[in-house]
């Protein structure tokens, strides 16, 4: 059980080890802890008169507030509500639901509104979001009828 190593080899091995130990220091952006918020995953499809609605912003925001969760629909109408750009979900509580193709936030120019105002600026759709759950909600919008389907877990709060 004896291995001969040349001094030069051992030296270079130790240098390599030292270099490996000194890697990059902790220098990344803040890692936020979202666990205490009780976020509930909300996904689904938005359809307007049966057709998938592309490029619409779906939002769930508490009444009288501007801070909540937002999602944008893709070509097949699918959305996922995001709390931040790195974390999906909606905080629990009573939220007002809005669907709009015009409102794209402060940092983008507004688009053309294709959704009736009863679903966005004049929305009275209230839902109660539970904590630490996962929901799939297909939002069926009707340009003639103001009613929206709500799944069992998200009940309309009246």
């Amino acid at each position: 059980m004896m291995i001969r190593l040349s001094a030069r080899f051992a030296h270079s091995l130790l240098s390599l080890l030292a270099i490996l130990c000194f890697g990059c220091g902790p220098n990344s952006t803040a890692k936020l802890s979202y666990d205490s918020l009780g976020l509930t995953e909300v996904t689904g499809v938005v359809r307007l008169d049966g057709e998938p609605l592309e490029g619409a912003t779906v939002s769930m925001v508490p009444e009288g507030s501007f801070s909540g969760s937002f999602g944008t629909t893709d070509a097949s109408g699918k959305y996922r509500l995001m709390y931040t750009s790195e974390k999906s979900g909606v905080t629990p509580g009573v939220k007002i639901v809005r669907v709009s193709t015009a409102d794209k936030g402060a940092e983008s120019a507004p688009g053309k509104e294709r959704v009736p105002s009863k679903y966005n600026s004049k929305s009275t759709m209230k839902v109660v979001v539970p904590a630490n759950s996962s929901l799939e909600w297909n939002i069926e919008l009707d340009s003639s009828n103001g009613k929206v389907n709500a799944p069992e877990v998200i009940k309309e709060d009246r």
């Binding site: 291995i3 190593l5 040349s6 001094a7 051992a10 080890l17 130990c21 000194f22």
Partner: peptide, 25 residues
């Protein structure tokens, strides 16, 4: 008189360096 380290010696040196690095880094 051939020059060289035994494996044990090498491991001991590595261990000492690891401890020093862990303290100093």
């Amino acid at each position: 008189h051939k020059t060289g380290f035994t494996l044990i010696e090498l491991l001991v040196v590595i261990a000492i360096i690891a401890v020093l690095v862990a303290i100093l880094l």
